[in-house]
Design a protein around this nucleic acid. Structure first.
Lengths: 159, 159
DNA sequence: GAGACGCTACTCGGATAGTGTGTGTCCGAGTGGAGCGGG
DNA sequence: CCCGCTCCACTCGGACACACACTATCCGAGTAGCGTCTC
């Protein structure tokens, strides 16, 4: 099981957007320069965040992205779900009903699969932990010098 | 983020092996027939469980697989880690040190990345929940008729 | 008749192809500003 | 000099190739049982 790198990018970009806390939208190129990421592909990932309502996008010149909500109202779960998709990691294909299970009475399968339930329980714990952390929490634990440095780096390139 | 189907197979197979609780090893073909799974590919997955020390494999005729430990000592975490690999789902590539971060003093990076820490926290909750559940727990929540049915199905094919 | 040898059938184990989901890129739609012309 | 129009540069949005990992498979190594040959 592996998580796409777009999750890391999305998290750091949301954090950077919170640091910049600018009214003006931040274009993809500038955001990519902050982390030396491939600009076009980063844009594709940010589009996922827009579709999820986490970012607002402004088209046209002087356009770009900005946070759609205050950092305290953006959970890590929101970002992960937006980038990786809403599907559960563990997918139950009901193999219990195949083979030997085909001979079982149908009422036995009205209850959900015990294996799937156990896996789902663990995944819910993961989701709950992600939902309990917001971008604002990331702000509070970030190094004190980071926001100013990002802002300087950003304004330098904006000329 | 998606989890391979081998995890579901591994879990159900361990459960079936616990149901059969047989001294004689169970060959791949019989195990695959219990769930109508592709036998050869299932065998490849079971090999992962053998490498992890969850199953014992007996080569040669009358060979097969059997649980290496009592069901109560096999956690779901063991099985998931064996099939999916030990790597964390979220991989921190330290993009905080690139771009704007390159200008930061090195001592700022002695502390781990806050984003990675938050993600790791959630993943640890997931792992903890998986480690708290054992195959024995799955046995206790399974339908009462399932073990006997699997055993009958198995012995029927074994002639 | 008993024992030992060899053969065969059947199993795990690792190396080998096909396919689907990311990964990375490109071009089109839309917008704000600057330059130019007219009043 | 001021206003409006036109053109252009720059941005997001969705459609298009490429790569790696998962899926699926085949052949080789090893073992238990059985038949046969010999004593």
């Amino acid at each position: 099981m592996r998580m796409g790198e777009g999750v890391e990018w999305g998290l750091h970009c949301c954090l950077a957007l919170a640091w910049l806390e600018d009214e003006a939208p931040v274009p993809t190129g500038r955001l990519a320069a902050l982390f030396e990421l491939p600009p076009v592909y980063l844009k594709k990932r940010l589009q996922s965040l827009v579709r999820a309502g986490i970012l607002d996008s402004v088209p046209g010149m002087r356009g770009g992205f900005r946070l759609a909500r205050p950092p305290a109202e953006i959970t890590l779960m929101d970002i992960v779900a937006a980038v990786e998709g809403p599907d559960d990691a563990f997918r139950c294909t009901e193999i219990r009903q195949r083979g030997a299970g085909a001979e079982a009475p149908a009422r036995e399968f009205t209850r959900p699969c015990g294996v799937a339930t156990a896996m789902r329980r663990a995944e819910l714990a993961w989701r709950r932990e992600l939902a309990a952390q917001t971008v604002a929490d990331l702000l509070s634990v970030s190094p004190s010098g980071a926001p100013g440095r990002v802002r300087r780096h950003y304004e330098r390139r904006s000329g």
